[in-house]
């Protein structure tokens, strides 16, 4: 039994098959990357796995349990966490508070205790704050803790989002283009962070455009084209696969034509 198992997942939007019959699995400590040309259905696949879209067909199993189409907050409670391609930071909060919000499942308690500031509520807040500060240190943001999140650089926000996702101590972490829009230095930082997280036993599912990054850190690569899986395997094998080369060259040739 795999930690995260995707079985023949599919969805159509108004007759258009965005994703069709995609299966693969992710094991603890493994980094699996989903790649493919633009519009191949990567983010759609991600949104189905993380419960933002309800799949039209197929199943998602987490630790053996069928979690297909389950709402994100329920998936979070079962150990699945994610980041977003176009950042979803709580702009109205400080950096520290963003990280603390990641501890929601551990820090939540009776709302009445929170309203009256009872010792139990203060204790939960303290716990979250300590955890959040440790996480911020881990991603190199400890000195920005009290700044408003909206004022951070793009690369820092990417790391903040990863920190927030790690706060809940997930078994599976879904990263949607974590290096998109980052410069070389930032990309490398995120690179290291991901490898380190995987080493701690978290299963990582990655959607990424940066092929160098994918080849460098993935254990296993799944290739999508036109919503279907066209290849799967270790990075070196996949990069030599003729179908994959055709898919990428095909789109690049089309891009060049334009």
């Amino acid at each position: 039994m795999s930690l995260l198992q995707i079985e023949r997942l599919g969805i159509a939007f108004g007759g258009l098959r965005a994703v069709h019959d995609v299966s693969f699995s992710v094991e603890p400590g493994e980094i699996v990357s989903v790649i493919g040309p633009n519009g191949a259905g990567k983010t759609t696949l991600f949104n189905m796995i993380s419960g933002v879209y309800r799949p039209g067909s197929g199943k998602v199993r987490l630790k053996g349990e069928d979690v297909t189409g389950m709402e994100p907050f329920l998936l979070a409670a079962r150990g699945m966490s994610r980041t977003f391609q176009n950042l979803q930071i709580f702009q109205n909060m400080t950096v520290l508070e963003n990280a603390m919000a990641g501890f929601h499942l551990q820090e939540r308690g009776p709302v009445l205790a929170d309203l009256l500031n009872l010792p139990s509520s203060r204790k939960r807040t303290r716990m979250a704050e300590e955890g959040a500060r440790a996480l911020l240190a881990r991603v190199g943001l400890e000195r920005a803790a009290d700044r408003e999140a909206g004022n951070l650089s793009y690369g820092s926000l990417k790391r903040l989002e990863i920190a927030r996702a790690l706060a809940m101590n997930p078994a599976v972490l879904l990263l949607d283009e974590p290096a998109a829009g980052c410069n070389a230095v930032e990309t490398e930082e995120i690179d290291h962070l991901i490898a380190e997280v995987a080493k701690s036993g978290v299963a990582i599912l990655l959607v990424e455009h940066d092929m160098k990054m994918v080849m460098r850190i993935s254990n296993h690569v799944v290739v999508l084209d036109h919503g279907e899986k066209i290849a799967e395997g270790p990075p070196e094998a996949v990069s030599r696969n003729p179908a994959v080369i055709a898919a990428y060259l095909g789109t690049e040739a089309a891009d060049a034509d334009r």
């Binding site: 993380s50 419960g51 933002v52 709402e71 994100p72 907050f73 998936l75 979070a76 409670a77 966490s81 994610r82 977003f84 979803q88 930071i89 709580f90 702009q91 109205n92 909060m93 919000a101 990641g102 929601h104 499942l105 927030r164 996702a165 706060a167 809940m168």
Partner: peptide
Amino acid sequence: GSEIAAGTVGI
């Protein structure tokens, strides 16, 4: 701040 992100942290 973000309903979607709030969901992913378990809210």
